[in-house]
Simulated assay, not measured.
Amino acid sequence: MKSPAFSLCVYCGSRPGANPAYAQVARSVGEWIGRHGGQLVYGGGHNGLMGLLADATLAAGGRVVGIIPKALVEREWAHKGCSELHVVDTMHERKRMMAERADAFLALPGGIGTFEEFFEVWTWRQLGYHDKPVGLLNVDGYYDGLLGFMQTGVDQQFMGPWQMELIRVGSDWQQLLPELVQAGGITPADHLDRV
């Protein structure tokens, strides 16, 4: 079997959210991953944005690696259609495996779990535990408040501007996805343009 061109870890909600744009973007991101010969690494759920993202990736010919703790198999309805579904013992094991299997990370709209995973992988990057690109897709201003608060952290000197520069923030998925993949040195830019 052919290896994927890249492996993108996506964090997102296990609910669809109030704005239909969130679901549309989740589907579009999944389709983009699949059309470009990529692999989605995600939390393994079938509900909400997670399920839409995985289904769209699979429908477009991409591979999907789901990683879910035993305790969440019933609550998040583990996605049985994943190319690989790993049921692990703990959240720590889940997040470690997701990080190991990814070339880059992206947060879509989501709740507390999405926030926690995004902040953890960003923290790991600033500590030098990995050097993989980290992105935040700000769909219809969903993350405006969070980004403002993060800037307050810089303004109040609890963070440096260099820490903010470790993440790529965008509102256009068509621009942000290629940037993340290419920043990871995963696929030459001209290859993505030809696909």
Rank of each mutant, 00 (worst) to 15 (best):
M1Y: 04
K2P: 11
S3F: 00
P4W: 02
S7E: 07
C9F: 05
C9Q: 01
V10Y: 11
G13V: 13
N19F: 01
N19P: 00
P20L: 03
A21T: 09
Y22D: 08
A23L: 05
A23W: 01
Q24G: 03
A26W: 05
R27A: 13
V29K: 02
E31D: 05
W32I: 15
I33E: 09
I33Y: 03
I33M: 09
H36S: 06
H36C: 01
G38V: 05
V41M: 06
G43L: 01
G45E: 15
H46I: 05
H46D: 13
N47E: 14
N47A: 10
L49Q: 03
M50L: 10
L52E: 08
A56V: 00
T57Q: 08
L58T: 14
A60S: 02
A60T: 00
R63K: 10
V65P: 02
I68K: 04
P69N: 13
K70W: 06
A71C: 07
V73Q: 13
E74I: 02
R75M: 11
R75V: 14
E76Q: 09
W77Q: 13
A78Q: 13
A78H: 00
S83E: 08
E84N: 11
L85A: 05
H86W: 12
V87G: 12
D89W: 05
M91F: 12
E93P: 03
E93R: 07
E93Q: 15
R94L: 04
R94M: 12
K95R: 11
M97K: 12
E100S: 10
R101D: 02
A102N: 04
D103F: 00
D103A: 11
G111Y: 05
F115L: 15
F115D: 06
E116D: 15
E116V: 06
E117P: 00
Q126E: 12
L127D: 05
L127Y: 11
L127F: 08
G128K: 09
G128V: 04
H130I: 03
P133T: 02
G135Q: 04
L136I: 05
L137R: 08
N138W: 10
D140R: 12
D140H: 13
Y142V: 01
Y142H: 10
Y143E: 07
G145W: 04
G145A: 13
L146E: 00
L146C: 04
L147R: 12
M150H: 02
Q151H: 07
G153H: 02
F158T: 07
F158K: 15
G160N: 06
P161R: 12
P161A: 02
P161K: 07
Q163F: 01
M164N: 08
M164K: 10
E165G: 15
E165K: 15
E165A: 15
E165V: 04
I167E: 00
R168K: 07
R168P: 00
R168E: 04
S171G: 09
S171R: 02
Q174H: 14
L176F: 03
V181L: 07
G184I: 04
G185F: 10
T187K: 11
T187V: 15
L192P: 07
D193C: 02
D193G: 09
V195L: 08
V195S: 13
